[in-house]
Design a protein around this nucleic acid. Structure first.
Lengths: 338, 338
DNA sequence: TTGTAAGCGTTATCAC
DNA sequence: GTGATAACGCTTACAA
């Protein structure tokens, strides 16, 4: 009972041909109801399962999509992937996971691999190191749908799903201003990445809208971990006039900042208000919770999947669809003065 | 330049046959060095890429493995998957992700799907709802390697990679005893799941080893979220003699317990010590950190992948390999008295 | 309505 | 050492 049953086995059993079996199984109209039912019945009896690989080779469609992220065990990315999987599985697609470790070369290799494996689409978030675009073009050359989520490459004709990072930065900063803060620091990431640039721009715009002059000394560009946050906080503590708020593009950095400030006896948010970005789970589990901007990760995954499905359905039309989800500012203890 | 190049195209160009091209590409010894190099050169020139699907159909090996978890965006599972991916990618395997949402039917469907897709192996953590084993046997019938990680089904002849949950429960409880606690509560999950049963057994064994009588009233079986922890804490607060320690099989429950206790003015760990399980990221980010038992998620993924590789290398040998990793007790604020 | 045969891109087994 | 051919399991013109 463990050997593979093919349509030939069914055909042999019924003294018909494999083509007929195939037609019956695929509800091809050009077949008599009688044989159709008979085939279906015996197929079930014999425990026939379609070999997707043969189908894939024949049709050129593997029913697999590749999803490429820096690291899969980062909450944001695993949540996006969850959304993608939940949207695509019911449509018969399987999700192949690949990690770049933020390395451009690995991204290039991975794409090459996925193309060899004949994936029907690639959904990805670009690695931080990436500067080239040739490997993306190789996907487009093959007319395979490519969808960027969150981090996209500068490339014409490619769809993307992001949040409005500018708005996120604006809202966060505006909220701090509303709380009475005036000396608002921004700690961000490398502005070569659009997401960080946009958050930074949103920050500046909010300052300007409130008539607060932009101070370049109040901007720190650094990595996205707790340690970087602590170091940044040390810098801030050295200033003649210590800032009264921090808007960070990373929750981890926000956490590091808070830790260091508390260590120095400052109160959050009374002395310094802090808002992070990403709505990492820990921000709401902390004893004193951290305000953050939610990135709608699962929704981003779902929407990315839908954009892919649209493109795969209309292969001729080359649409560049840019979906921008609305980020949500979550105001919590770290920035809400009583 | 975007159309697919096959070995036939190369053959045509060189006026040789596809078989020869194939041999050259696969370093088959029965070929002259001259043609080998020539083929390799033109293959590169023409930008030939092997079609993995054709190879897969021919060989019966897809170079894909299915990984099935309840939810991919749970830190533990995404970390295991990261480990699996990092171990398997260099060996040429792709990881296909599937989620069961803890539903048995979805687990059954998923396995059926993966088998149709001719995966070379299945690595999985069993859903909480699962009671049947037929769907696992279908994998074994096809002689496809099956590896359980963390949660395994009761099934002979299947390899598994787990942590020593008994030891984890023992260590956590012993630590609480060493801290001077005597009225130690255990909050666990459904003991139908081996992991919860083992942690519970470890707890009991540690009590016994220290001559502390086991008290059934000190055992609460519940779900694994913060709310459940808060409810459990309320029950404990109603007791005539309030316990002095809690060992929880879940970090989320531990968090809920701590929140509720603090709400009632109790100090952690002075009044009640708490140890959780899983080493969820938030446990070490909290202002007052939570002790927990680390489950070596990434390592578990790596090892699971290696067990799969072994089995796939020796298809004849039917080994039931049971790897048990050592959990690591991480003592933090919530249980360490000054 | 059903059968025949070609083809998807490889590799493997024969011959030569 | 190279070529011809079959085979993996399926779908689909084209015939019948």
């Amino acid at each position: 009972m463990n050997e593979k049953v093919t349509i030939y086995d069914i055909a042999k059993r019924l003294n018909i041909t494999a083509a007929t079996v195939s037609r019956a199984l695929n509800n091809n109209p050009k077949i008599s109801e009688a044989t159709r039912l008979l085939v279906l019945k015996t197929a079930k009896e014999m425990n026939y399962k379609q070999n997707k690989l043969a189908l894939a080779l024949k049709s050129g469609k593997s029913n697999n999509v590749g999803v490429i992220v820096p690291y899969i065990n980062r909450n944001f990315f695993s949540s996006v992937i969850r959304g993608i999987e939940e949207e695509l599985y019911p449509k018969g697609y399987h999700v192949i996971i690949c990690q770049t470790h933020e390395e451009e070369q690995k991204e290039i290799d991975t794409i090459s691999n996925l193309l060899n494996a004949q994936v029907d689409g690639v959904l990805m978030s670009v690695s931080k190191q990436t500067t080239k675009t040739e490997h993306f073009e190789r996907i487009l050359d093959k007319h395979i749908p490519l969808v960027f989520f969150d981090r996209r490459a500068k490339l014409k004709g490619v769809s993307s799903v992001t949040i409005d990072d500018y708005q996120g930065g604006y809202d966060a900063t505006k909220h701090l201003i509303d709380q009475g803060c005036r000396r608002i620091v921004h700690i961000g990431g490398d502005t070569k990445l659009e997401i960080y640039k946009d958050r930074f721009e949103g920050y500046k715009a909010a300052l300007e809208a409130s008539g607060i002059p932009f101070n370049p000394d109040y901007v720190i560009i650094t990595k996205s971990d707790t340690e970087a946050g602590q170091k940044a906080a040390e810098e801030l503590l050295k200033m003649k006039v210590v800032p009264d708020a921090v808007f960070s593009s990373s929750d981890f950095v926000a956490l590091g900042v808070i830790q260091k400030f508390k260590e120095h006896g400052l109160s959050i948010p009374e002395d310094i208000s802090v808002v992070g970005f990403s709505n990492e789970p820990f921000t709401k589990f902390m004893e004193s919770t951290i305000s953050s901007v939610d990135q709608c990760a699962m929704e981003m995954g779902r929407v990315s999947a839908r954009v892919f499905l649209e493109q795969v359905k209309n292969p001729k039309i080359k649409i560049e669809k840019k979906v921008e989800l609305s980020p949500q500012l979550l105001i919590r203890d770290s920035s809400l003065k009583k």
